[in-house]
Write a protein that binds this DNA or RNA. Structure first.
Lengths: 106, 106
DNA sequence: TAGCTATTTAGCTAATACGCTAAACAACAA
DNA sequence: TTGTTGTTTAGCGTATTAGCTAAATAGCTA
C-alpha cells in the first residue's frame, strides 16, 4: 500500500502507467516520452517495479516493461473502499472486479 | 491531481481521510489518533486542505475538519479510468457513482 | 484584564527524493 | 577482439518533506 501510493506520487510515474495500458514498452521507448535523462527514468522504473506496479522482462539487450494492473487496483481501490464505507482493511475484493467496468459483460 | 496524489503519499494523511469518513472531527481529536506532535499534524492538515481533500470549518476555538470525498473520487477514479481504458482525462463520471458498492450495509 | 485551551506558525535538523553527468554492464554485430 | 546500442549504477548537488520544540495567535471564561 504504502509503497504503491509512494510510487504514484510522481507525475512521470503515473504517466508511465498510463502509457503501459496499451501494452508492453521498452525502457527506451518509455524514456523517449519524457524530458528527463534515461538514468532518471531508470530510477522511476525501479520504483514502479519495487512497488509491483510494473514487470520487467529481459529480452536480450532490451527490457520490456508491462503494467501489473492488479496490484494497482488492489491498493487504490482498497483504499477508496475504506474511505467510502470503512469496511475491511484488507481490500480483498478490490483486486479483480472493482466494479462492472462500463456496460461490460454485466 | 498532482496535489491530490501528493497528499495521498503519506500514510498518516490517508488515515486521516479514513477517520473522517464517519463525520467531522476536530484537529485535536484527529491528532490524538497519531503518535506525532500536533504541529506535525497541523502540517498534514494543511496539505490535505490545500489539495481540497478536507474542509476546515472554524467553530470558535476549535476547527472541524470534514472529508471532501468528491475531490478524492475525481482525482483517483479519474486516474484509474485512464490507466484502465485510456478514455477521458476528465474523470467526470467517476465523482459520484463509482460503482454499486458491494453487498455492503444491505 | 488574566488565564486557559486549541491550533498554527517559526525555525531548526535530518532524511528522502529528483535530477544530472560519467561510468559501468549486458547483449549483440562485425 | 572492437564497436554499438540499451540500460543501469555510482556519485553528487539541490529541493522537498517530515519531524521536533518553542512561541504566537484565536477564542473562550472568569
Amino acid at each position: 500500500m504504502n509503497v504503491v501510493f509512494d510510487a504514484l506520487s510522481h507525475p512521470i510515474r503515473r504517466e508511465v502507467l498510463e502509457l503501459l495500458k496499451r501494452g508492453g514498452m521498452t525502457a527506451g521507448e518509455l524514456a523517449d516520452h519524457f524530458p528527463v535523462s534515461k538514468p532518471t527514468m531508470s530510477g522511476h522504473f525501479a520504483k514502479l517495479k519495487s512497488a509491483g506496479l510494473i514487470l520487467g522482462e529481459n529480452r536480450g539487450g532490451t527490457i520490456l516493461y508491462t503494467l501489473n494492473l492488479s496490484v494497482l487496483e488492489e491498493a487504490v481501490m482498497g483504499f477508496m473502499n475504506r474511505v467510502r464505507t470503512g469496511q475491511s482493511t484488507s481490500a480483498q475484493s478490490a483486486s479483480a472486479k472493482t466494479c462492472p467496468p462500463k456496460g461490460e459483460t454485466a
